[in-house]
């Protein structure tokens, strides 16, 4: 694999030096840059040559988390991972927008394993197809009819484990988690009739 290109957005020189010296021990794996200049960061994002941004979220003036949400959008559009570098309290809801969180007191090993985990998911996500397969449609229909995972497995001649994995993929693709939400999706897309729905 090529080197992982990391951009670190952090004001503190002490922290920057610390990150650098930790990552340097595995310099064959990581290519690391620092910046806190708006234009420079923007250029790097748009260059498409960024794999991961390590960001101290308090670098932004962002009382409502809007900036981080937009950054999240950029991360999706330009295909990089967003990792938070946290050493003061930060709103947990906003931290959910990050792919991973590195805390100031994490040990070296932990930092490396977190970074590697993030990169792995990056690879997986690229393979993901957002269209719902025929098999997944079948599962949605049966979920909407109120069937349990076991019943679905029996009806489709697959294992319960496979049903669960289908359901996970469905949620990722549609952005719908609840059974009632999936039911509406099924009715809208005519996977089941409205009569079926009112019966169940």
């Amino acid at each position: 694999m090529d080197k992982l290109r990391i951009l670190v957005v952090e004001h503190s020189e002490i922290i920057r030096q610390g990150i650098f010296s930790i990552l340097r021990s595995q310099s064959y794996k990581y290519e690391i840059r620092f910046s806190d200049q708006a234009r420079d960061i923007n250029d790097q994002i748009r260059s498409g040559k960024l794999d991961l941004m390590l960001l101290n979220p308090s670098t932004y003036f962002d009382p409502k988390g809007e900036r981080i949400r937009l950054l999240r959008q950029d991360a999706i559009n330009f295909g990089f991972k967003l990792v938070a570098l946290v050493y003061a309290y930060f709103d947990e809801q906003l931290l959910l927008l990050f792919d991973e969180i590195i805390y100031i007191n994490d040990e070296e090993e932990k930092i490396f394993s977190k970074l590697e985990k993030v990169v792995e998911t990056a690879v997986q996500l690229q393979d993901d197809d957002v269209t719902v397969s025929q098999r997944e449609m079948d599962v949605i229909r049966l979920v909407a009819l109120g069937k349990s995972n076991r019943e679905i497995a029996e009806e489709l001649f697959i294992s319960v484990h496979t049903v669960i994995s289908h359901r996970k993929n469905i949620t990722n693709k549609l952005g719908i988690k609840s059974v009632s939400g999936l039911t509406i999706y099924a009715v809208i897309n005519k996977l089941i009739g409205a009569e079926d729905f009112s019966k169940s």
Binding site: H11, A38, N42, E66
Partner: peptide, 19 residues
């Protein structure tokens, strides 16, 4: 206005600047 996502990088706080 936050129109393009470019704007967000102008919201970086200069070092030592607090909210």
């Amino acid at each position: 206005k936050i129109s393009a996502s470019f704007d967000i990088y102008n919201y970086l706080i200069p070092s030592g600047h607090s909210e």
